[in-house]
Amino acid sequence: MLGTLLSFCLMAIGARELSGEVSTFQMLFFRSVIGLVAISLLMFATRTTAHVFTRRLRLHGLRNVFHYAGQYGWFVGIGLLPLAEVFALEFTVPLWTAIIAWLFLGEALTKAKLAAIGFGLLGVFIIVKPGYEVVNLASLIVLGAAMCYSISHACTKSLSATEHPFTILFMMCVIQLPIGFVLALPSWQMPVGTQWNWLLLIGVTALSAHFCMTKAMQYADVTSVVIMDFFRLPAIAVVGVFLYNEQFEWSLLLGALLMLLGNVAAMSKLKAGNKIESEITEVRANKTKRK
């Protein structure tokens, strides 16, 4: 998840630097091209090319349609809103993800998760100060992106149970590349100079972010992973202040603190629950041996 945090922050910087110079559709297209080349080379180097095949193509398609829509909304928001506000609005994802994972993946919606999500959302509301200034088109686009991301996260959790991370990443690039190309054609403009550097950064970090997220989901349930993702908010706020002279507000510290408290409480409950479950399993195993 630390790898995910760093990747998303660097990707946001790349998107901000290209905003107004390269269209969002082109950014997403080149992201897929760079990602496809990188993952293909990595699979050849590790002799894991068998992972290009999948028996769950429909779920991959569903995941990537919603992920592409979420990514588009996120990139648009990066160019229109302060970085911290984009990330804060994006962090409504845990609410939608928890509901979707509960409805379709059978994950338990425990009191600890609900409390953590509640603290997190309260922190978001304190940061963005819901009111007239938040209810605008850019904010609604980012909120829509958050809903799309939640569906994508739920699909990733389901896929990670049977699919190798390379398969998920490879299918992401293969499916999203033609979508991005078709949508980018009407406003196509060949990148020049340092724009290629930023596009390369976006392509690489998009791949590393999803690899890290997919691996994290193999070790924890989807809601816990997304809750940990809250740490991106204070990190990107620092980036916004120092790189783009965005206004620093003390409410950010309060909101981030609430998110941290919720996250720590959820992780403590999760670890305690896992410990108890492990002890019960051990007792049962000992009884079986005695019999």
Rank of each mutant, 00 (worst) to 15 (best):
T156W: 14
I151D: 10
N274E: 09
K215H: 10
W102D: 01
L143P: 11
I13Q: 00
G20A: 02
A256L: 07
G70N: 04
K289I: 10
C9I: 15
I39G: 05
L28T: 05
M172G: 09
Q247D: 09
A84G: 06
E17Y: 06
G180P: 04
A12M: 10
F181G: 07
V204K: 02
L36I: 03
S208W: 02
L253S: 05
G79T: 08
G144L: 03
V135L: 15
L159F: 12
R63E: 01
G131S: 12
F211N: 01
L233G: 01
S158V: 12
V182K: 05
A184M: 12
M213C: 04
H153N: 09
P186L: 08
M1A: 01
L143M: 14
N245M: 13
E279G: 14
L59Y: 01
I39N: 04
E279H: 13
L137M: 14
M147W: 11
L80S: 06
R16M: 10
K269N: 14
K291D: 02
A115H: 05
C155V: 08
A266L: 15
T49P: 09
N64P: 05
F66H: 11
G180S: 11
N286C: 00
R290E: 13
L18C: 07
L252M: 13
L41S: 08
M171I: 01
G3S: 15
L42G: 13
E246R: 15
F25W: 12
W74A: 13
A220S: 13
W196V: 13
V241N: 13
C155S: 15
L169H: 00
L105T: 08
S7W: 01
G131A: 11
L105H: 06
L121A: 03
K269I: 02
T205E: 02
V37W: 05
A15H: 00
V222T: 14
V192M: 10
L18F: 10
S150W: 00
K289T: 08
L201R: 10
F170K: 02
L143V: 13
